[in-house]
């Protein structure tokens, strides 16, 4: 990449893909905290469970993404579900089986699983 134009083109395209400037698609983004603390708390099986379930349920609009530390270590493994036009949902203390439930009820069914939502423990 040699020019600022190229940089701005990527920026524009990515921001549309991530729905950052208004809704351009109905993708659902599932961000799994996979820093060392998340991994230590067991986030890798959660990540794999989400990937497996999304594939099994055929949810082509759901993207499972790894990210760094969300900051609140005591609640790891933590996952955030972001959808354009809807409030972000933060899930805490997850495991492979709770990931499966969230995939079925929230990602496929559209209803957040309140049992694992932050602040409702």
């Amino acid at each position: 990449m040699k020019t600022i134009q190229e940089l701005n083109d990527i920026r524009k395209q990515m921001r549309a893909e991530l729905n950052l400037d208004g809704k351009t698609n109905s993708n659902i983004r599932v961000t799994v905290g996979l820093a060392t603390c998340g991994i230590a708390a067991g986030a890798e099986p959660v990540f794999k469970a989400f990937q497996k379930e999304v594939k099994r349920l055929g949810l082509t609009n759901v993207k499972i993404i790894q990210s760094g530390c969300l900051g609140m270590c005591k609640h790891e493994p933590m996952v955030e579900v972001t959808e354009a036009g809807k409030e972000k949902v933060t899930y805490i203390a997850l495991a492979a089986d709770s990931a499966k439930r969230i995939a079925e009820e929230h990602l496929a069914g559209g209803k957040p699983v309140m049992d694992f939502v932050i602040g409702n423990e």
């Binding site: 060392t36 603390c37 230590a40 708390a41 609140m72 270590c73 790891e76």
Partner: peptide, 19 residues
């Protein structure tokens, strides 16, 4: 310190981390 202070006390066995 291995930097997992939020999960203290922590120990590792090779690459496995226990918090």
């Amino acid at each position: 310190c291995i930097g997992c202070c939020g999960l203290a006390p922590v120990l590792t066995v090779n690459a496995d981390v226990y918090g």
